[in-house]
Computed example of a mutant assay.
Amino acid sequence: MIRDDWFTVQQIDSDTYAISEYGHWEKVHSFLLIGQDKAILIDTGLGIGNIRDVTDQLTELRVEVLTTHVHADHIGSHGQFDKFYVHEDELDWIVNGIKGRTDEQIRKDMTRDITIPTPPGFDPDAYRPFRGVPVGTLKEGDFFDLGNRQLRIYHTPGHSPGHVTIHDETKGYLFTGDLLYDKTPVYAFYPTTNPEDLVRSLERIAGIAGVSRVFGSHNTLGLDPQILGEVQSAVRELRERDLIKFGTGTHRFGSFSVQF
């Protein structure tokens, strides 16, 4: 059993783990996928706790990081790993920061509404979003072979321009980042978002075959793949009602909602 005062580690199967930050209002999940030859960590969370301490307890294999998108709550601990990848459309963000979003704004969001003690040494006043240079960039159709486990990259923009969805084709797991989760709305109302792209991306993932479980990066851990059927119906309704544009508000569809 892995013990950590900040992270909650939940075993999905014998070689897949969710590493969650339930003490923060974002309730962020990162995911460790262990293969025969190497391991992949999908996102690195908020950067409040030391996620490397957790992954080192879970595997002795080298760990590379795949980034669903370059928002601060998904890249906080990228600096703890030698190899990380981001989509090519967000390379400038990871190196130089998101234009129009100051470090001070991000610090306030990342350090508010924390419900459990933070790790020793964490200073909320010193919090800054991670910046660095990836070892490589991601694009549509990229393939990662872990030895006995294959991952495919889908470019699914909308929530952000370089957002990706990762399909574990061996297990059937679909890691949807901030494109699809439950309880709180999927956001596409910021200037850096795009409602039309978001809906096209939702439609795209709803057509992926062989999905056994859907793992969003927030809220409920693991969703029944029937949510993809709800997504297909939602896409039709949004188009028929001409709602796919900024300012139309929050739209609820069974297990999930979107906000434009």
Rank of each mutant, 00 (worst) to 15 (best):
G210F: 03
Y127C: 05
L32H: 00
L138R: 09
H163Q: 14
V164Q: 03
K108R: 11
V186E: 05
L146A: 04
Q232K: 10
V231E: 01
V95I: 15
V235T: 02
D73A: 15
L61Q: 11
N219A: 11
K245R: 15
G158W: 03
Y190S: 13
Y127V: 00
F189M: 07
V63S: 12
V186Q: 01
G207W: 10
Y127I: 00
R241M: 12
D109E: 15
F215P: 09
D43E: 07
L46H: 06
R52T: 04
P161D: 10
I42P: 01
L66K: 07
K83G: 12
S257H: 02
N219L: 12
T156M: 01
F144E: 02
R241G: 04
V186A: 02
F246W: 09
K139L: 04
H155Y: 13
D178A: 05
G207Q: 15
E21V: 00
F81R: 05
V164G: 08
R52Y: 12
R131A: 05
V214L: 01
G216P: 05
D53R: 06
T111D: 05
S30R: 04
I114Y: 04
H78T: 03
G76A: 07
R62T: 13
V28T: 14
T67R: 07
K245W: 05
L91P: 06
R101E: 15
I42W: 05
I205V: 14
Y17P: 10
H69P: 02
T184W: 10
K108S: 11
T250Y: 01
V63T: 10
D15P: 07
D5G: 00
S217F: 01
I19Y: 10
T59W: 03
E237W: 12
T220C: 06
R213Y: 11
G254Q: 11
Y173M: 07
L221P: 04
F189G: 14
Q10H: 12
L32M: 10
G35Q: 07
L32G: 10
L33P: 05
D197N: 09
A234T: 07
G249N: 08
L174C: 04
G97D: 08
I51V: 13
G132W: 03
G23P: 05
T248Q: 09
A188F: 07
T102C: 11
T137Q: 09
R131G: 06
G162L: 10
G249H: 09
V235A: 11
Y85Q: 06
V199R: 05
D178T: 09
T248W: 07
F31Y: 14
V186M: 13
L46E: 09
L228Q: 04
D145P: 05
V70A: 10
L138S: 06
E196L: 12
S30T: 14
I244W: 01
G247S: 08
I153G: 02
E230P: 01
Q80G: 09
V164F: 01
T250D: 09
L223E: 11
G177L: 06
L151H: 06
R239Q: 12
E64Y: 11
H163N: 08
G254T: 13
I153W: 07
T118E: 00
K171T: 10
K108T: 14
I208E: 09
H24Q: 12
E60I: 11
V86R: 03
G177W: 07
L46T: 03
D4E: 01
S14M: 13
L91Y: 14
L179R: 03
D56P: 08
E203S: 12
K108N: 14
